[in-house]
Simulated assay, not measured.
Amino acid sequence: MPTTQDMTTAGDAGLLDTLQHEVALFARRAEQTRLGGVGKLRNSMDRAAYLLLNRLDKEGAMGVKALAASMGIDSSTVTRQVAPLVESGLVKRTSHPEDGRAVVLQLSPRGIARLAEVRASRRELMEQLTEDWEPEDRSRFCTLLTRFNLALAARMAASPLPADDTLPPAN
């Protein structure tokens, strides 16, 4: 039975080499700019904060364990990342409605407003970066990038990496 490598043609290998290189460049540029938006909000919210606030906005109030599970990261990482969001008033801790002993995290009114500002700024950046694209190209890119991210998530779920804080520094 042929292996995956045996089934890859020279053309496929070249395309896959180009793909991995472009993904690496994208990751570097996205981290350098944080794709943070435009104007005064450029680089104004780090990736972890944005993803946590976005998840709480989309899924509603939840405990640390549920939030960590929904994001595919460790509870201790969520706890560490949520602390400054609580301190800055973007997230609030409240009692669980059914179990007063449990604590849930939810967006504060300030967090909702801040997230809306950051989303609008990032949306404007995406518009600027793709302003000369056809609408079909934007849609296709979004579909393919979503598909790629889902494949990465499935791969991570099947074979998780160590927690973020145990990874070696990126070069």
Rank of each mutant, 00 (worst) to 15 (best):
T146C: 08
S139G: 06
A153S: 08
D132Y: 07
C142D: 13
M156Y: 12
M156D: 13
F148H: 07
S139L: 15
F141E: 06
R147E: 15
D137P: 00
L145E: 10
D132F: 08
A157D: 06
R138H: 03
R155Q: 12
L152C: 04
T143I: 09
L145D: 08
A154H: 07
D132Q: 13
A153Q: 09
R138Q: 04
A151D: 05
S139P: 03
E131Y: 06
E131W: 05
A158M: 00
F148K: 00
T130H: 05
A158L: 02
S139K: 14
E134Q: 13
T130Q: 05
R138K: 13
R140G: 00
L145C: 11
D132S: 14
A158N: 00
T146I: 04
T146E: 08
R147G: 15
N149T: 10
D132M: 08
E134L: 11
E134I: 01
C142V: 12
R138D: 01
A151S: 06
F148S: 05
F141N: 10
T130W: 00
A151H: 03
L144N: 14
A157S: 09
E131A: 13
R147T: 15
A153E: 08
A157M: 03
C142T: 15
D137T: 09
D137F: 01
T146H: 09
S139H: 11
A158T: 00
S139E: 15
R138W: 03
T130K: 02
T146A: 07
A151T: 03
S139Q: 15
A154F: 05
A151C: 07
T130P: 01
T143V: 12
F141L: 15
A154M: 10
M156T: 11
E134C: 04
D137G: 06
N149W: 09
P135G: 02
E136F: 06
D137Q: 14
T130I: 01
A153T: 06
W133C: 08
L129Q: 08
W133A: 04
P135K: 02
T130V: 04
R140P: 01
W133E: 02
D132W: 06
E136V: 09
R155H: 11
E136K: 10
T146R: 11
D132L: 10
W133Q: 03
E131H: 11
P135F: 00
R140I: 03
R138Y: 02
R155W: 08
A153Y: 05
E131L: 05
L144C: 11
A157P: 02
E131F: 04
R140Q: 03
E131K: 10
E136L: 10
R155G: 07
L152S: 02
E136R: 12
T143D: 12
E134H: 15
D137W: 03
F141I: 10
T143K: 13
